[in-house]
Design a protein around this nucleic acid. Structure first.
Lengths: 240, 240
DNA sequence: GTAATGTGACAACACTGATTGTCAATTCAT
DNA sequence: ATGAATTGACAATCAGTGTTGTCACATTAC
């Protein structure tokens, strides 16, 4: 009976008064109402990143998150409709961090494919090591929080795989003619990287970063070599 | 106050009476007490496989499992100390199924390495497709149920990776001298396979099995080719 | 048949967590 | 200074889960 969700707010909605008034609240602590709310939201996301990232989604409740954010439950439901909703925000924050790091690495002075792959993988690893909470969020919890989150997670990793896939296809356009699906190869490559990173992370990042990076790119190298072999050609410009 | 675990039964313990008596109950429905208990245990595991495999561990409670097993809660705690304990049993059942299938495939008439890899991978995929609940149990939930389960899961997949690793090492003993860690390569290979399978499973097994198998073994092939390249040698007996 | 034992339905209990509501104290606009 | 807006602490409610216990009934051994 208490399961009445208002209009099912998905996450964001400005602070509106019950009545029709513009409801422009006054300034507090030198800040606009919207700005204050934004800050609270950020605090909650930060707390969520911390709690979820350290203990796992299923081991953390709203109470704990609010305590960590130094906010009360009321403000939780001001910004998020439930715990999963918060996780989604945390997830997006996490994946944006990773994406930004990888993109920055890729936008460095132009080099050959191998060097770019190496740089991208290294950025990925460095980001996760710098903030291990991201590993848990992105690699583990994202799969079991709920259907919606899984979907988003699939999309996100798929977007990475798609990049790799189209890159492969641009390097070896003849692959499909030889019964090789570039997209599946890309998925496999992403899989090998992700899996190596998982092992690395779960064992406390003991293995030197360079070692892991080299073994990750080894697979990209290997895929390239194998592609050449399948095509039977000496390879189109592998270095560009 | 109600948190008193008897001697913390981990899972299995015969039906013993409170007092010291042998407690050999009488036959019921033509079955020994132990046999009946064993059946109940199996029912619970089957129900757990079903419920966990379809809805996910965190979405299923003890009540629901008991309902599905057509047993009452009392019998649940007769065989398992809690939900996680049951999951562990279900997990072991699942991984045994997979392991058996793979081993059976590997024990076929001797062939070359590539054919064996293909057979093993195919057995893996066929098993998961035949029972999609296994996918969820093994690939998803195993990571988030709890610390103990994660540990066991790590061990199980690691044992697969170890096999691959030592196989690689036996084929290319010179690899370490060239800065390549066979164990990391093996992990990457397992990762690519697992990841491809995950995508395959989560998209309803739409891609033809043969296609997925071929792209999985492609990575094993590629790793072999790359190993030869790194070593600089024409390769030691690749086919055996 | 009768008594002991196994069984199933279900109540009871203790917890935990999510969500909403209350209220006094604080902060700011005027 | 005064009153309204804002905040924080916390109570209250509600639902769900794990876990143990009760009790009537069914099944078997004797």
């Amino acid at each position: 009976m208490s399961k009445s969700k208002p209009p099912a707010k998905t996450s964001e909605d400005a602070a509106l008064k019950p009545d029709g008034r513009p409801a422009r609240g006054r300034r507090f602590r030198g800040l606009d109402p919207q700005e204050r709310q934004r800050q609270r939201r950020e605090q909650l996301i930060a707390a969520g990143l911390n709690a979820f990232g350290n203990k796992g989604y299923h081991a953390v409740g709203v109470r704990e998150i609010c305590a960590e954010a130094k906010l009360t439950e009321r403000y939780f439901y001001e910004s998020f409709s439930n715990r999963e909703d918060l996780f989604l925000a945390v997830y997006h924050h996490a994946i944006s961090t990773v994406r930004a790091a990888v993109m920055r690495a890729l936008s460095q002075p132009p080099r050959d494919v191998q060097a770019m792959a190496r740089a991208a993988v290294r950025a990925f690893l460095e980001t996760l090591r710098a903030d291990p909470r991201l590993s848990r969020i992105l690699l583990i919890d994202a799969l079991t929080v709920g259907a919606e989150v899984s979907r988003q997670s699939q999309l996100a990793t798929q977007s990475f795989a798609d990049i790799v896939g189209s890159l492969i296809l641009s390097l070896f356009p003849q692959l499909p003619k030889h019964g090789v699906d570039a997209q599946l190869v890309a998925n496999g490559l992403v899989g090998s990287t992700v899996y190596l990173v998982m092992h690395w992370a779960f064992n406390g990042f003991k293995t030197p970063l360079d070692t892991v990076v080299e073994h990750c790119v080894l697979f990209y190298d290997a895929a390239g070599t194998e592609a050449e072999r399948r095509i039977g050609k000496p390879a189109p410009t592998r270095r560009a």
